[in-house]
């Protein structure tokens, strides 16, 4: 029996994704939140690669390639914002960022 099938990878990817969600919901440090987002992105990427392997089609690789690219850009801008927020509020705790409301 070959474990390296799309099904096992589906479970793995789903678990990773849920861990990312969990992290987002229970942590307050913004940088940890960013990390969790990266985990979720990687879960999705893993799924792409697994299905690419399954169908023998390399388009999945391309998608992963672009998703990494976007993730890198996101990290750059996100971290810049975070630095800005830290300078302004002296904290990266999202619980204190509740000014944006009516």
């Amino acid at each position: 029996m070959d474990l390296i099938g799309y099904e096992n990878y589906f479970w793995l990817s789903t678990a990773l994704f849920s861990i990312g969600i969990l992290g987002i919901l229970i942590r307050r440090n913004m940088i940890i939140l960013l990390m969790c987002i990266e985990i979720m992105l990687n879960a999705a990427n893993l799924m792409f690669i697994a299905f690419a392997y399954k169908w023998g089609n390399m388009d999945g690789h391309i998608f992963v390639f672009f998703s990494m690219l976007v993730a890198a850009a996101e990290a750059a801008v996100g971290l810049a914002l975070m630095v800005l927020i830290y300078r302004k509020f002296k904290t990266v705790d999202i619980s204190y960022l509740d000014k944006l409301k009516f």
């Binding site: 390296i4 990878y9 793995l12 990687n42 990427n45 893993l46 690669i49 697994a50 690419a52 392997y53 690789h61 992963v64 390639f65």
Partner: peptide, 13 residues
């Protein structure tokens, strides 16, 4: 995860 990619024949990725 990169290890998984290798298992799935996605060396470049």
């Amino acid at each position: 995860i990169s290890g998984h990619y290798l298992l799935l024949h996605a060396q470049f990725v």
